[in-house]
Amino acid sequence: MIYVFALFLLTLLVITAVAIVRTENLFVAVMLTSIFSLLMAANFFILDAADVALTEAAVGAGVTTVIFLSALALTGDWEKPRPGGRTVALGTVGVLAMLLIYASFDKPRLGDPEAPVHQHVAPWYLEKTPEYMDIPNVVTAILSSFRGYDTLGEVFVVFAACIGVLFILGVKPARQTAAAPQPVSGLRHHLIPQVVGRLLVPFIVLFGLYVQFHGEYGPGGGFQAGAIIATGVILYALLEGEAEALRAVPRSVLLALVVGGALLYGAVGVVCMLKGGAFLDYSVLAADPVFGQQLGILVIEAGVGMAVCGALLSIFHAFAARESMT
């Protein structure tokens, strides 16, 4: 039964993707992208990936849409239609689609327990997680301990991207002499969204913290929590105006979060080395190796959450500040 629902969702996914590419109104395209992400999250959930669904819903449907919209405000809503035939492009992608569909018949059936992907290290992770870390959520265990190097790299990519955006958008625009930024009123004349939004913001942040610290026991963790808290603050910025949000969470705090989060993650690794273990081998952090692992996971998840939240908010503010600059 659930597969029939999945079929329906997947078909909607294809329709949405085609609609996104067909429309010439970029605003509509961005809104459809948000729906696309939500459908994708539902699909992930049906395929048993609760953590990924949570991330996709928070990041794809929430943060990405806001960032796209703030970029659209700076570049314009309409795409110019391209004249001329589209046979070549359609032909190319058509052939590629045919090839991929042909190749799909060699892939293992959906849910086949004998598929090669389930034979490699995954069973080992599932078997050893209770022994080494004793936490229920295997995804968190792999993310932060077994594959801790990988996640460290990802956090530094997020960090680098954030710094890149700040550098690119931080430059003063050449044409104007810096005009005094007019105070942004936010949604002053929209009383009801403001009242309801104010009511919701604390709960969103609270839920983000729950996801952060409950990540070892249920779906969640630093990446999701960072994104959820960032959406809460972005909602506040949309309601009260950007200046007000910056007063609540100033730029310096955001930068400290990004840098501090990445540093915290790296520092845990260094502390592990100082205590005689390998880099990011949390077992040496405490007398009991299992407790050491749990402690390490808690701390680096906090680092990930700080870095992601700070990076997403810095990016949002960089785009929003550009609006008042030009």
């Binding site: 395929l47 290290v121 955006v165 690119i168 990446f223």
Partner: peptide
């Protein structure tokens, strides 16, 4: 259990995806 490994890879990829997307958008704005 379903396989946790692809989930870990994609979970991080989604967040990295949005930050690189923001980088691209920043370049478009410039």
């Amino acid at each position: 259990f379903s396989n946790p490994l692809p989930q870990v890879l994609i979970l991080t990829a989604i967040v990295v995806g949005v930050s690189t997307l923001a980088l691209g958008l920043a370049m478009v704005v410039r």
